[in-house]
Design a protein around this nucleic acid. Structure first.
Lengths: 227, 227
DNA sequence: TTTATTTGATAGTAATACTATTATATTTGC
DNA sequence: GCAAATATAATAGTATTACTATCAAATAAA
């Protein structure tokens, strides 16, 4: 199942663009070109000049959509988290047992979705890879506080709080729900990066993907048992 | 207890500098100036020109010690992990019970050390803050693989493997020791960043520092219980 | 005190991250 | 169908960055 980027109304914070890129052909080309080039070059070496060449337009035209390359990557990451949020909503809606709901969330947060069997939006897999490789850089700047004021991270926070509330439903006395969830969300991406580049930091082998099992195991033990 | 940077023989990978900065006055000024400026400006806005102004030398002179600003920050982070490694070695040496040893490690990895009561090297606290704010950016580049080949991350890996081996001593069947340790090492820094800038992602309040308790709790539950 | 070695001063370059201006298409409203 | 609005392209320009190169002056080692 594949759904079109432009057709899905995944909301993205309007402070991130000057002109809504999904509103025009060129805008869509900017988005798709950015995903491609950031993945290829890494965010540091990604420039609007190279992007302009790639999609056959000019730097000046791109600047009419996005104020800076930081805003572009923030836009993409924002879109990705909106997308995760949407998937979590879809897959927990009709699930009564909170533990089942929690497992669905952990799956969405930690696994690489399988387009054969799962609902996957267009561009979602490429974006996940981009988030794994680049997203921390965007958090860890002197601008976080300003960007946070603009609501750039609210989608992310909503996910954390939604999953945390399920944890509290299961164990109302668990003292660290948000820390646990944000650790899992960031940790699972980090472990995938380590698996690819610094495998001695992980226990991941070629055969099976242990990321989801590890975090599921850790989470369930953490919230269930009293010390 | 405070010990001098230059006097301690904390080893740093020799591929990271052109000329050993601890071997000269200017070299030490480059290190200390870098710590200061990277903390103030963030790594992105840190430049050798600004550093040269700060420590009253020239860009060209700095380039005789370090090939690039990336190498400088890698040097600092490398030094930090050497330092952690040294502290872990010191504080576990004479501890027989593996669980006690593990708790000491987790303390060193997750807590902000207290210079009143603990052995703390000169610059260590500033460097810890720098690692919290900047270190992920240095991992997450297209150069990781090359840097990894030069052994830049070996100190980090050694810590992971040392702590993992204690976990396996306690529970030889635990399947994810390295993942657990690296998640804790990165996660604790990340949680401190979140606490300072995106507090809704954590459960940290002003009064007490929950980072160590959270990770200790999670770790002990993870390795002790069978599902 | 000669000779290395280290540092300083200065210059230069290609690339980056923009801003500004003007011209040319394209769309839309009437 | 045409003027008016809007979107895009083409081009130029700027300050800063991340270096490299050269040469002279200061300092330390033999």
């Amino acid at each position: 199942m594949n759904h079109h980027f432009s057709k899905m109304s995944i909301p993205v914070n309007a402070h991130l663009f000057l002109k809504d890129p999904v509103s025009s052909e060129l805008g869509i080309k900017i988005i798709n070109g950015s995903i491609l080039l950031i993945s290829q070059l890494g965010f540091e070496k990604f420039t609007f000049k190279k992007l302009a060449e790639e999609i056959e337009t000019t730097e000046a035209s791109i600047y009419r959509y996005f104020e800076s390359k930081q805003k572009v990557i923030l836009y993409l990451i924002n879109w990705y988290w909106s997308c995760i949020s949407f998937r979590i909503y879809m897959s927990t809606q009709n699930v009564l047992d909170p533990e089942d709901r929690l497992l669905k969330c952990i799956h969405i947060l930690t696994a690489i979705p399988d387009p054969e069997n799962e609902f996957v939006l267009d561009n979602e897999l490429e974006l996940k890879q981009l988030v794994i490789n680049e997203s921390s850089k965007v958090f860890l700047t002197k601008n976080v506080d300003d960007e946070n004021k603009l609501g750039v991270f609210s989608e992310y926070k909503k996910v954390v709080e939604f999953v945390s509330s399920i944890i509290l439903e299961i164990n109302p006395k668990y003292p660290f729900p948000n820390m646990l969830v944000s650790t899992i969300m960031e940790g699972s991406n980090q472990q995938r990066f380590f698996a690819a580049h610094l495998p001695r930091l992980t226990n991941i082998n070629q055969k099976d993907d242990l990321v989801e099992s590890f975090f599921t195991d850790t989470l369930l033990k953490a919230i269930k048992n009293e010390k």
